[in-house]
C-alpha cells in the first residue's frame, strides 16, 4: 500500500471551498492524523470536497471517519462531498464493508449522505 498523504488546498474558483486530497492507503495508524486534518478542513470551509481519486486503500477506521465528518458537516450547516474520480478500489472497499446504501441515515437531514448512490 502506498503511503498515506493529505493535501489541503483552497479551491481557486470558489471561496470558502476547501479541497482535501487523500492519497495512498488509509490505515488505523493514520486515523488520528486523518481526523485532525478533517476537523481542520471543516473548520476552515463552508464546503469541503474530499478528493479520493488517488486513494489506494481504506480501512474501517477511515470509512468511519468519512461518515463522522459528514455528520459534523451536516450539523454545522456545511456541505461535505466526495469525488472519487471513478476510483474502483475505494468503491469496492466501501461496498465490501457494507457502507453503500440507498438512503442516508436518520441524521442525514440534508440528504447528502456520502454513501448513497454510486455503485451498489
Amino acid at each position: 500500500m502506498d503511503e498515506f498523504k493529505l493535501e489541503c488546498r483552497q479551491d481557486p474558483e470558489s471561496r470558502g471551498k476547501q479541497i482535501l486530497k487523500i492519497s495512498g492507503g488509509v490505515t488505523i495508524g493514520d486515523a488520528g492524523g486523518f481526523r485532525q486534518a478533517l476537523l481542520a478542513a471543516l473548520e476552515a470551509a463552508s464546503e469541503l470536497q474530499l478528493d479520493l481519486s488517488e486513494m489506494t486503500g481504506i480501512d474501517l477506521t477511515g470509512l468511519q471517519l468519512l461518515c463522522a465528518a459528514h455528520q459534523s458537516a451536516v450539523r454545522g450547516g456545511k456541505w461535505l462531498h466526495i469525488t472519487d474520480g471513478g476510483n474502483l478500489t475505494f468503491r469496492e472497499m466501501a461496498a465490501g464493508a457494507g457502507f453503500c446504501r440507498h438512503t442516508g441515515c436518520a441524521r442525514d437531514t440534508s440528504y447528502s449522505c456520502i454513501w448513497v448512490g454510486g455503485e451498489q
Binding site: 481526523r35 478533517l38 476537523l39 471543516l42 468511519q64 471517519l65 461518515c67 463522522a68 465528518a69 455528520q71 459534523s72 450539523r75 457502507f99 441515515c105 436518520a106 441524521r107 454513501w115
Partner: peptide
C-alpha cells in the same frame, strides 16, 4: 452507521 459520533 447510525451510532457513529460526529467527528469532534
Amino acid at each position: 452507521t447510525g451510532d457513529f459520533p460526529c467527528l469532534e
